[in-house]
Write a protein that binds this DNA or RNA. Sequence first.
DNA 1: AATCCGGGGCA
DNA 2: TGCCCAGGATT
Length: 340
Amino acid sequence: MPNPLTETEIPHLRAALLGWYDAEHRPLPWRQEVSVYRTVVSEFMAQQTQIDTVLPYFERWMRLFPDFAALADAPEEAVMKQWEGLGYYRRARNLHKLAREVAALPELPTTAAQWQELPGIGPYTAAAIASINFADRTAVIDGNVIRVLSRLTADATLWKSSQQAQKQLGPLAQRLLDPERPGDFNQAMMELGAIRCRKARPDCLLCPIRTWCTGHRQGNPEAYPQVQRKATEKVTIERAWIVSEGKLLLERGAADSVRLADMYELPRLATLPEGFAKGDLHFKQQRGISHQRITEQVYHVKPPEKPTLNGHYVWASPTDLQQLTLSGPHRKWIRQHWSA
DNA sequence: AATCCGGGGCA
DNA sequence: TGCCCAGGATT
């Protein structure tokens, strides 16, 4: 059989995909009411994060920061606080910075190339914003699109990274893109990957483009894509549980730190000043980040008589704790173990 | 091109 | 436990 994705077939594929999308797309909040700002916020939140996780954050965010101007005017702490629990906190910092830059512009950028100049926006997010809001003819390539395209063409390449797959599949994605409805087409490709062309047990019988799909025809769509992954690394961190006069000692991440900048967490044991005495293990928790499996061991620690602590440390009462921004796991553990 | 982000959910 | 998720920045 010849390559089914000939130039004469592509318009039919586009029509089938868009027809399906029009009829069956999920009524996500940023689709029900579309604006540049809503697209930008949803795309930032959805980076490396599943849509179901994003939904409650998105609704809260829109109530507090309804537009670029409101976000630009908001203090940094308020912005970080709303992101608490969503992870990859640099996204929130970049989004805030972006709002301030956009609010200062005479008019909004319109092309993907222009959007990509802004903080926190790479090739994917730029294409999504520009195609959805300004009909810019730039194809998006995310994890969903990689899966759909590699199955469509039964591409057995062993990608060394998703970044490499994005690069290699770019021309095909661009060739398929419907020039009349680029935003809807981009969303349709992603929607298909999310609800039909799933990683496991894809619903090929309900797929609008299975006619053109080599993976389906061969009967092994789940074999694609093949992406090499790095093994999970195990990391252990020791932390201190120090309560004095009804307050819990917390440590603030350095403002210029790559991770958890200006956010609070239980103090690391290794970097506490002299005089703190490590006691028994209080509790132990696990969490994951990217390719790391992190075990956190929290010990009871007895402070010295007159502890001298620099500005990175703070004694927090339960009320203070409400105001501060912590990572999701630390917030949860403290709530579980500090029922004062 | 690799690595990190101290996320989170799911089989 | 491994894998994936509407990735981007940094080196």
